[in-house]
Amino acid sequence: MPKVIVDEARCKGCELCTAACARKCLVMSTTFSVTGYYPSVCCAPERCTGCGLCAQVCPDLAITVFKEEKAKK
C-alpha cells in the first residue's frame, strides 16, 4: 500500500495538498503541530495510489510519498 508521510514540523497547514488529491486521502488534523499549525494527515492510505500530486503542490516540501515497486511497472 502506498504511503504518504507528512512532516508535521514542516507543514504549515495551507491545505493545498488536500485539494490536489483526487481521492481525498488527505485531511487537516484537528490538533496543533509543534509549530502551531493544523498539519495535513493521510486519513485513507487504502485509497492512495502514490501518484505524488500532493507533494507536487506542497510549498514546504513537507510530503514524501512511497509506493510499491510493482506499481511502477
Partner: peptide, 17 residues
C-alpha cells in the same frame, strides 16, 4: 517501497520562512 519524490540536493535541508 519506492520513494516517489525526494528533496532535491540543490535545495538546502532547511525550513523555509
Amino acid at each position: 517501497m519506492l520513494q516517489v519524490n525526494r528533496r532535491p540536493e540543490s535545495l538546502c535541508d532547511v525550513k523555509m520562512h
